[in-house]
Structure formats: structure tokens, C-alpha cells
Design a protein around this nucleic acid. Structure first.
Lengths: 251, 251
DNA sequence: CCGGTTCGTTGAACACGTTCATTGAACATA
DNA sequence: TATGTTCAATGAACGTGTTCAACGAACCGG
């Protein structure tokens, strides 16, 4: 029983293990948020958590997994919150709210947004599946919104909610990548535009039969099937920067 | 003058430098293609090139830049070739050929496709700009195809070629990411579908004014402005794999 | 030709992510 | 209580990307 301000360490292996894991994850989150992913190093995180570097790596396969573990819950919370706040209105309007809500997760982390996006898109297992499941949940929600839009007469009766959701994700991630690469100041506006344009093809009064060509829609974009991304562009300026070897290097 | 099968090393600093750079890039490409990015290491590449590891890094800021330098020309060649072979036909058909042609670049490199995609999408300068310029060139070409489609009456007269190109890239990269993450067996088919759906909203007989809401199109998606990507999904199966700590690790 | 300068190149050293043999406290059993 | 087993945790060691002081040959100017 420690009478000082320092709480007793939990006793028992299971409890100690849980406490250690929690301390490591908290320390990692703080370190990543403070200095970014590249600058954060395992030894600093270990010190912050009061354990050894070996212990940090004991509970997470590698630095990347530690990043996922440290930030995943935040993303989950953001999604839940955003989805709960989509309100009413036209499909495009609600998707716009979704875009803004989720974008905020990245926007408020200038030091981390790029790595968070990059590493989540290309995560290894088991995190690939966790992110996939996360996206699937949003996907289902978007499909639901699309169904409501059909009911309201906003979209044609034969509209495929999955197709809408898939297109939405394509636009969203495309805009996000462009933004983290510095090539797009307002990703939200771009997503809005692309969604508008896309939904235009699904509106009542339009048909799926185009210029005599049968549109062979695949029936369902499996929720587990994601992603398309565009080259993140910076500027069209190739920034020649002649390959002067290492002349300008750290010399 | 060496009479054996081994050519004389070039003399003079400039010539020597050029030869060294070329040897390093060639060795890097071979090593990356042979064992993939992660398994390839600088020391092995240096040995293959007949120089020191320090020299490899002297000419390329880091391993990632070496990857870009080693493979960029291949991508350029693939794009040029593909663009030259789009043939005639409907816009969707030609875009389909573009998709297949570029997809081949990735498909024939099972060991490298994932890293190539990941690192090109999130490249640092000066490579970010180089990739951006590359995409811009394709973007302009797609916009031109869209204009032709307008002339042929395939698309409405007020269609924005840039918008078409942007959407195309969104779909393309989305599908590619899903594919490299193992969640999408046929990315080309998905791109085709999404393009079809999107172009549906641009066809003659459809209007930009939807359900009484004015569609505020941004006029031009700057070619330097790219990218949107969707979460690459694996399967919707979260692959729980309880965080059993490092039990199953290399022990 | 000679001497000073430049620069391509090297390999040892360093930093960081990661591995792994070892330790000692927690735990279980007789 | 004594003893054997288990496992959370450690820190030294390792592998790899990267840095950088140093070297010697190419180069330049007098």
C-alpha cells in the first residue's frame, strides 16, 4: 500500500500486462501526435511509457502496428460521431457532411495525416482487415442513405447503393491523397463536386441504357472491396531539380 | 585498352559518374524486381553495381528515391505505349483500354506492385512533382478524349473534360489500391463499371440541374490536383486475431 | 611539370527498428 | 513451505538505412 501520490502498480500478471499495454499505447499516441511518425522513435515511446523498447515491440509487431493501435480508436470514434450526425436532407448534402466530418480527423493532425492515410490504405494484416471492416460499416451506411434517396425519388429505383458507396470512397480517398500531398487545398469541395456529378447519372429521368450499349452493372461492390486512388498530384510543375548527385546534401 | 570481354571503365570524372549512376540504377531495378522492395537492401544493390553502399546513397537521397529512379522510366514507357494504343471508339471503351494498359504495369510485378503504388502515391519531392506531371499528361489526354466524345454527341456539350479525367483517376486508383491489398480480384472491371456509371450522368438527355438544386460545378480540376483514394479493403471479415501480444511471434 | 583544388568514392560509424537469450517475479502444485 | 513452471519484461545484440570523415585520382592554373 503506497501512501504517496504514486499509485501502486497493478499486481498479477494479467493486470500488469494490461496496464503495460495501455501505457505503451498512450505513450505512442502522445509521441506520434507530438512529433509525427518518422520522428517518433521506439526508444522515446518506451521511455514515455516507462518500459523498455523490447517491451514496446513485444506487444506490437512493429512501429506501423503501433501507429494503428494508437490511433484506430480515434478514427472509429470520429466515424461513429459523424455518422450519427448526418441529419436529414438530400443524399449529396448528407454525404457532404460525412466528408467534412471524416476529413476533420486528418485535418487536425498536420503532422500525422499523411502517414495515417498512407499506412491505413496499405496496412498489413491484421490491420488491413480491421480497416476494411471499418470501411464496410460506413459503406453499409452510405448504401442505406442511397436507398432512402431512392424512396424519396431522388435517385432512380434501380440504383445500386453499393455502387454509390464505392464511388463515394473513390472520390473521398482520391481527394484526401491529393490534399496530403499538398496538391489540393480543399478536398471536401472536390468530393462534393464529384459526388454531384456522379449522382447526376443516377437521377430519375436518366436511364441505364446508354447509346445503345448495355450497361453491364456488376450487381454489388462487395463491401470488402475497396479503394481506388489517384496519383496524388502536387503541382504540375515537375520541379526539375536536376539530379545533381548529392551536391546539395548534408555537406 | 582492355582486350578481354570486360569493357574499360570510363575515364574522366563526369564519365565515371554517369557510369556509376547508371550501374546503380540498373542494379537497383534488378534487385527490386528480383526480391521486392523490403527484401532488397542497399548493400546487396551496391554489390550488384560494384560500388559501395555509401555510393548508392550518394546518388539517391534514400532507398525510396532509388526505387522511383529505378522504375519511373518503365512507368513512363507503359503510359506512352498505352496512350498511343487507345484506338477509336466510345469514350468508355477507350478508357477501358487505358485502364488495362496501365494495370499491366502493376500486374506483371507481383513483388513490387504494392510498394510501387504506395510509394508513388505518397512520394516526397522531387518525385511527388514528377509523378504529378506524369499524371497531368494522362489527365490532359483523357480530357481530350472527353472532348471528342462531346463532338460525337456521346457526352453533353457542357461536359467538363477535366471532371471526367479526375473521376477516372479516382476510380482507377481506388481499384488499384483495393487490388494490391488483396480485396479486389479484377480492378479493371470495377473501373469500367464506375466509369460507365459516372458517364451516365454526362450523357445527352441528362441535365446538370438536378431536383431543383443547382449543381455548382467547379470549373476546372487543375491537372496538378489529383487523387482520392478509398480505403483498400481486404475482406469485410475483420480477422479478429485477438491481440495475443507477441505469443505467435518469432518465438 | 608542379602544386593546390575538386570531387567521386569508400568504409567505418551511427541511429533506429527489431530480435532474442535471459531474468526474476507471479503462479501452480504437492 | 518448497519447488517447478510460466511469462512479462529487459537490455544487449543484430540488420539495415543512412551519415560523414577521409582518401586519392582527376582536374586546373601558373
Amino acid at each position: 500500500m503506497n501512501v504517496f501520490n504514486e499509485p501502486d502498480p497493478p499486481t498479477g500478471r494479467a493486470a500488469q500486462k494490461r496496464a503495460t499495454i495501455a501505457a505503451v499505447i498512450a505513450a505512442a499516441r502522445e509521441e506520434f501526435e507530438a512529433v509525427g511518425y518518422e520522428a517518433a522513435n521506439i526508444r522515446a515511446i518506451a521511455r514515455r511509457a516507462g518500459v523498455s523498447a523490447g517491451t514496446v515491440i513485444h506487444y506490437h509487431a512493429d512501429k506501423r502496428e503501433l501507429l494503428h493501435a494508437a490511433l484506430f480508436a480515434d478514427l472509429e470514434a470520429t466515424l461513429a460521431e459523424t455518422l450519427a450526425d448526418l441529419g436529414r436532407g438530400r443524399l449529396a448534402t448528407r454525404l457532404g457532411r460525412l466528408t467534412r466530418g471524416v476529413f476533420r480527423y486528418y485535418e487536425k493532425r498536420p503532422k500525422l495525416s499523411r502517414t495515417l492515410l498512407k499506412e491505413s490504405l496499405f496496412a498489413d494484416e491484421p490491420w488491413a482487415s480491421r480497416f476494411a471492416a471499418q470501411v464496410a460499416r460506413v459503406h453499409v451506411e452510405i448504401a442505406r442513405l442511397a436507398s432512402e434517396a431512392v424512396s424519396r425519388g431522388e435517385l432512380r429505383a434501380d440504383c445500386d447503393g453499393d455502387g454509390v458507396a464505392t464511388a463515394y470512397f473513390a472520390f473521398f480517398y482520391f481527394a484526401l491523397i491529393a490534399w496530403v500531398q499538398g496538391g489540393l487545398p480543399d478536398p471536401v469541395a472536390l468530393v462534393d463536386r464529384m459526388v454531384q456529378q456522379h449522382l447526376a447519372g443516377l437521377a430519375p429521368g436518366t436511364t441505364t441504357a446508354r447509346q445503345g450499349k448495355t450497361t453491364t452493372h456488376a450487381t454489388r461492390t462487395e463491401p470488402g472491396k475497396r479503394a481506388e486512388s489517384t496519383k496524388p498530384s502536387k503541382r504540375a510543375q515537375p520541379t526539375r531539380r536536376a539530379n545533381t548527385g548529392k551536391t546539395g546534401r548534408r555537406r
